[in-house]
């Protein structure tokens, strides 16, 4: 009999309850004309580049551009309009929906304390231009984007994996990558250190947080009152002491009666 079809396009956890008729509300968006600073930004950008969409959401101006323009737009924002700081950039995985990544850049204007989010969509194998000559922050952020999603970036001086080991297979933050890692990931450290032969000796990872071993109650029943193996439990009295009963040579033995409890914290 056939196994159940599991859609592998998005293996992240999904809500177990879905309501077909429920329409999710949206965070309110506003027209850029409501804020004069943002209005002037949009107007000057529209003159030079093609803006697909622009709106204000939660005090951010969000602009959608074409991916080929990204460096030019960011340079224009920096030099002409004063948005000189790139604070954050990353990608969002929409491969299941449309086969695209959505790249976003967060810009900050220090003099006016205003923020803009610049977004563009690229296909999975399309490459974008690196902005690290204008904003050195992109040096690290684009490396992380490549490491986590596999987004190709052109003209980057040091495009290597940054957070994962150099010989890691797979792009962790994609929706097709499971949270607990695939086969290559789960044996990575064993293969690296001991070799493939040790897989059976060390055993697979125990990822089940609710696992109960059958020895648990036997081995942890006398927690705090352990006795030596093989001795008769009813006769041995355990004193949960920090040192052996007879004390250690030259080391002062801590007697519980000699201690003093301090209650005033502000002494």
């Amino acid at each position: 009999m056939m196994r159940e079809y599991k859609n592998k396009e998005n293996v992240q956890k999904k809500s177990y309850y879905t309501d077909r008729y429920w329409v999710a509300p949206r965070v309110p968006t506003f027209d850029p004309a409501t804020d004069e600073e943002f209005n002037s930004v949009v107007a000057s950008l529209k003159g030079k580049f093609s803006i697909n969409e622009a709106y204000i959401q939660l005090k951010h101006l969000v602009i959608y551009i074409n991916p080929e323009d990204n460096k030019a737009v960011l340079q224009y924002l920096h030099e002409e309009l004063g948005y000189g700081r790139l604070m954050e950039m990353s990608a969002i995985d929409w491969l299941a929906k449309s086969g695209e990544f959505e790249i976003f850049y967060e810009m900050l204007n220090v003099d006016k304390a205003k923020r803009i989010r610049v977004k563009c969509y690229i296909k999975e194998d399309q490459a974008i231009e690196s902005v690290q000559d204008i904003f050195r922050l992109a040096n690290f952020a684009e490396r992380e984007m490549f490491d986590m999603f596999g987004v190709k970036v052109n003209n980057h001086p040091f495009m290597k994996r940054i957070l994962m080991p150099d010989d890691w297979q797979g792009y962790p933050l994609r929706k097709t990558y499971p949270l607990q890692g695939d086969e290559a990931a789960s044996w990575y450290e064993v293969d690296k250190i001991f070799g493939k032969e040790a897989r059976d000796i060390i055993g697979p990872e125990i990822r089940d947080s609710a696992m109960i071993d059958r020895y648990d109650s036997e081995r942890f029943a006398r927690l705090g009152h352990e006795v030596a193996f093989g001795s008769d439990v009813s006769e041995v009295k355990t004193d949960q002491g920090y040192q052996e009963d007879g004390g250690v040579f030259l080391v002062r033995k801590l007697h519980k009666d000699d201690t003093k409890t301090i209650t005033d914290r502000d002494r």
């Binding site: 957070l163 994962m164 962790p172 990558y177 499971p178 949270l179 607990q180 890692g181 695939d182 990931a185 450290e189 990872e205 125990i206 990822r207 947080s209």
Partner: peptide
């Protein structure tokens, strides 16, 4: 951290 990058 029951994730891909942590040694259990």
């Amino acid at each position: 951290f029951n994730t891909y990058a942590t040694v259990q």
